[in-house]
Amino acid sequence: MPNRRFADGEVVMGRWPGSVLYYEVQVTSYDDVSHLYTVKYKDGTELALKESDIRSQSAFKHRKSQSSSSSPSRRSSSRSRSRSPGRPAKGRRRSSSQSREQKDDKKKTISETNLVLLKPSENNTRRYNGEPDSTERNDKSCVIAEQKLKPDLEITRVLEQYSLRPRKEEKKKEEIYSEKKIFETKKVIEKASSKAIEKASSKTKELEFGGRIGTFTLIFFLPATVLYLLLMCKQDDPSLMNFPPPLPALQSLWEARVFGVCLLWFFLQALFYLLPIGKVVEGLPLSNGRKLQYRINGFYAFVLTAAVIGTLLYFQFELHYLYDHFLQFAVSAAAFSMVLSVYLYIRSLKVPEEELAPGGNSGYFVYDFFTGHELNPRIGSFDLKYFCELRPGLIGW
């Protein structure tokens, strides 16, 4: 690897790309891969230059001193030789030197106007021709002539050769692009790992509520507890010590009219749930990335229910019917819940494995039946779990 000649912060003379002009610049950094120096001009412009385009200030001062140290005698002798008869005429030699100077000026003009095309204008009245502010010279006629003389391919070649785009912007773009790539890669890895974990742990291993025996007991114990408390409250002296309470006749526990009222209440709340009022929100993402939508209108359903009850009272509907048949309502609600649970478990046997509940996929019938086998049982947009969890029960209370 070649060693660098110029250190960071060193003030040197840098050649402006596409010209023979050197200006005072300061070295800011060096790229070991491309072997380019990043230099900064006095006007703030930063460019990447090769080492061959950079000279030390001492070399420029030495060259200037040599050019100014030519002796007067040598000048006079050259002047005397030009006047000798053997030499060509003075006017002819001057005309040839003038034509050579015109060619040099033309080349210099072309190189300067080329830099005008490379550097974008800062405003409509001022153009930047590549020189520092102290020596800036610009002519619109030169720009127009250069546009006719130099094709766009030459501009592209200089751009690619000297990388005139700002180095800081390129570095920022590269950093943003690399950060975005890293973020996307992490996201893909996390998504793949989460899917692998979900597939590996699709079966429920930790059982709650006492496992199979506990859930089997709860299926019958919970409704029996409700009936026991209702029978205790019907006594003249309700107490837990008065056990067992007097058991009613079996035919008195069931009444078709009461069961019809339960169904009417359930479907009335379902109708309020399906009304297109209230905002719709998205739930948490599922294992397949899909998000379900839920309509938030429970408050409106409560207000409509209160309006219905108020209407019944206005028409003198006897609400004490609910109190008189409270035991039959409890039995009807338990029977309806059991039928609905059996339906949900049967339909869960046909859904894909990714739609099963993580906590209700143990493989044991009783446990999965009690905890719920399907994660989000729906009939169209009607979410049964979301509806039954709060609407019929709490609004009824």
Rank of each mutant, 00 (worst) to 15 (best):
F243G: 03
K119E: 11
M338S: 11
D53V: 05
I213A: 12
S70A: 12
E208P: 00
E170F: 05
R15F: 02
V226A: 10
V281T: 14
Q269A: 06
G298T: 13
D105R: 14
L313V: 09
P223T: 08
L247S: 09
K119L: 07
V25Y: 08
D152G: 11
I346T: 02
S71H: 11
I219H: 00
M338F: 15
K150C: 13
Q328R: 10
F315M: 04
A335N: 01
G260R: 08
I110P: 01
F365R: 07
L356N: 00
P223K: 11
V308P: 02
R94D: 14
A145R: 15
A256P: 02
L322R: 01
G372Q: 00
E154Y: 14
K205L: 05
E10T: 10
T371P: 00
P246N: 13
S332T: 04
F317T: 13
G380R: 09
E208H: 04
D105N: 10
R63P: 02
P245C: 10
S29P: 00
F221S: 06
M1Y: 08
R290W: 00
S337W: 08
L268N: 07
S84E: 06
S29V: 00
E353V: 02
K171Q: 13
I110S: 03
E46V: 07
K103E: 12
R87A: 13
D237T: 14
S76F: 08
